[in-house]
């Protein structure tokens, strides 16, 4: 380490940060690749099919094969499209999904940037993901793509409000915006995690997360029976693959945030012997995997929402619920029962 430090001189902090970013992004992309495999397998079994099983042992090399196939394909730019924005849109979609990982703690010490306002940073960065979708729809110069992007933009903006209020509840309970402090506020077993005192917010946050990532049953943005494939209908090859990657990266991000803020992060299920032997990082991974399974389960189970129902759910159900619960949490904090929340 000292040798490397001397080699790079004053550039060392930048090089070291870059190395850490690579150490997060590469496993992330691998996780994304195998999440697509897991999705096909899980939904396959739920629908009494087998799922991919041809490439490699039990189909384990399927995501690699898909990746190579997409890379070999030509990226077609429609003749009426705005070339610059058309190419920029996938980049703008995946960049926030990856940038948000900067403040995600993996264990009490392991975090890329332990910033004070981590929760706010997450909210701000994830709110920028919608630009990729809007620009993709507009730059494609296609009616289907444009309709898809309009649907998606309205949906994301609506559900972000409910999501923000749910996070207000978390920050009131933890009395901190720092994600490491939020997890440390949930020390102990399953009953000291925030999902219990903030139960309505936990549910609202998770469902809003599904809506934010445009996943079924909220996937009207790409509703294939109505508008072909929505905002990315004109994209092909790797440009399409980047949208696909961004969707799954966002799923993993929402799953990680749900586990950190409501499911106790790296805290073991019960604070007794056999559970505490498992390292905290593994607990976090298990929780993320559990939430991701819920995503897949939802997709295999529920039919797509009608668009006006989506809007109604977001504005008339979720926002009032979270608003009321913010008041409840605030009121309880002033009583002797405040220990129930913290």
């Amino acid at each position: 380490m000292a040798y490397l430090q001397a080699l790079f001189g004053y550039m060392w902090p930048a090089v070291w940060a870059l190395a850490k970013i690579v150490a997060i992004v590469v496993p992330m992309l691998l996780a994304v690749a195998y999440l697509t495999y897991a999705e096909r397998k899980v939904i396959g079994y739920m629908q009494v099919r087998i799922g991919p099983n041809r490439v490699g042992y039990k189909g384990l090399l399927q995501p690699i094969a898909d990746g190579i196939k997409l890379m070999m394909k030509e990226i077609i730019i429609p003749s009426g499209a705005n070339k610059f924005l058309f190419v920029l849109a996938p980049v703008l979609t995946i960049a926030p999904a990856l940038a948000a990982w900067a403040v995600i703690p993996f264990s009490p010490q392991v975090v890329l940037a332990n910033v004070d306002a981590g929760l706010l940073y997450i909210l701000a960065i994830t709110s920028m993901g919608v630009y990729g979708v809007i620009i993709a729809g507009w730059a494609s110069n296609s009616k289907y793509a444009f309709l898809g992007s309009l649907r998606s933009a309205a949906q994301i903006v609506s559900y972000e409000i409910a999501m923000g209020f749910a996070l207000v509840g978390v920050l009131m309970a933890a009395q901190s915006l720092n994600l490491t402090d939020i997890v440390n506020g949930q020390k102990g077993g399953i009953f000291s995690w925030y999902w219990l005192p903030l139960f309505p917010m936990f549910i609202v946050y998770f469902i809003s997360g599904v809506a934010e990532t445009n996943r079924a049953p909220f996937d009207v943005a790409e509703g294939e029976s109505e508008i072909v494939a929505g905002f990315h209908v004109e994209y092909s090859g790797m440009a399409f693959a980047v949208f696909f990657l961004a969707e799954y990266a966002n799923m993993i991000l929402i799953a990680a945030l749900t586990s950190l803020m409501f499911l106790g992060g790296w805290n073991p299920l019960f604070n007794i012997a056999p559970f505490t032997w498992i390292p905290g990082f593994v607990w976090l991974l298990l929780k993320i995997a559990f939430v991701l399974f819920l995503f897949l389960w939802l997709r295999a189970t529920f039919p797509r929402y009608r668009y006006d129902q989506i809007m109604r759910l977001g504005w008339k159900v979720f926002i009032p619920i979270t608003l009321v619960w913010v008041v409840v949490v605030g009121a309880v904090m002033q009583t002797p029962y405040a220990y129930l929340i913290h």
Binding site: V115, D116, Y121, A124, S127, M128, L150
Partner: peptide
């Protein structure tokens, strides 16, 4: 940092999205 993030959250994440929404149509 609070103001900086709030600027991104409010103006970039919400106001300009709606603005773009209107301008595009």
């Amino acid at each position: 940092e609070f103001l900086a993030i709030a600027l991104v959250l409010v103006y970039v994440g919400a106001v300009m999205v709606l603005f773009l929404f209107v301008v595009m149509m």
